[in-house]
Design a protein around this nucleic acid. Sequence first.
RNA 1: UCCGGUGUAGCUCAGCGGCAGAGCGGGUGACUGUUAAUCACUAGGUCGUUGGUUCGAUCCCAACCGCCGGAG
Length: 406
Amino acid sequence: MKSIELAIRLGWHGNPTYSPCLTVSFSVLATDSASSARRGCLVLPHGTVDTPIFMPVGTQGSVKTLHPAELVELGAQIILGNTYHLWLRPGHTLIQELGGLHEFTTWRKPFLTDSGGFQVWSLAKLRKISEDGVRFQNHLDGSKMLLTPELSMEIQASLGADIAMLFDECPPYPCDEAYAAKSLALTTRWARRCKDWITAHEPRSGDGRQCHFGIVQGSVYADLREQSARELVALGFDGYAIGGVSVGEPESEMFRAIDHAVPFLPHDKPRYAMGLGTPPQILEMIARGVDLFDCVMPTRVARHGVAFTLDGPLHIKNLIHAKDPRPLCSSAHPHVAGFSRAYLRHLFRAGEILALRLLSFHNLHFYLRLVAGARDAIVAGTFSEYKDSFIRRYTRSESLLPQCIP
RNA sequence: UCCGGUGUAGCUCAGCGGCAGAGCGGGUGACUGUUAAUCACUAGGUCGUUGGUUCGAUCCCAACCGCCGGAG
């Protein structure tokens, strides 16, 4: 128990400055007896991450509307950046010249960079997939560019992210089994090329090195998910992600995709569900043994006027809040708790930037408290109760006063 | 007072002798490895008033009322 406490303390305080002495590692500190949930500790070059954790999305090197110091205050331990977007603008070599992503952005805790694989899906109208890689029409100026597994690895290495994702193809939904199999085969060949690049360009092992996570694909097909997981594990990576989820499939399919991959992933490596999810989904995924999450939902819906509460999402722009003097929630972060719902609604209707900032701050606070609560519950042996009571209240349609996580 | 212009959705304005329109604003919803302070849906009308012409008038005509400009 002492080592758990020590690790938790380490994790909570993180590691504010770069320390190349940290040895990259992942430890499972506690497991839940009633589910596959685990409480872990991921040590990365720029700090320690307590898992399960939610990673705010900062595509362009910025978590939209928020200052890095605010992210620290919220308890964020690791954030995302995106290879495709940073490659196009301002360019990875420029970022490298200016000291890497951490120096460039002043976010000095861990960074995870997505490989650009997701843009193969999300920018489908602007791209063409081949064996070599993906030809994109640059959405900024229309010029044609080729992103390959090797280039993605190279870009992520020069950005200096703590965790680099492998370059994959994220198949669309729906997707027939033949295409899913063909897509998976390509993703696996790309994974081998990424591994070759890593072996050739990263002679260092151990301290301060960049981590690499493979990405399980296979759409909704159980055998393909299993195959994908086994092939990636055979290649050997620092962690494993489950990709190709939340691309339009029903939620039940999404959970099945996770269930069909997790059993084939090593217990002693971190697992990452890419692009997920809603608050209840996060807890369901933790119960299934997932350690890392990222999602644009808290920040995007915040900018669109939705605040997360224990009683479900609250649309702050709605007329019902026009004269409501109450705060968003009884235990919101002090930066937000002082504002009435009426004022927040006013800010949105007036188009004030503060509105977007306050709700982004609040929603990330909600997500980070949600996973912090899960971590504590796993250690305390009360995770199932924590999950069930949260979901019961969150999804109850006739809710009374929205409250934050106590 | 005279002359001219103009009255259409909450606002700014299209329109046309034959089913009343847009943008914004209002209301509601969506958003899941961010091309997204975005997108979708929806509710609002005695077309200033009263007459006339016409099979039919928001539209053409007249008077009146309001507003804007010019002259005096």
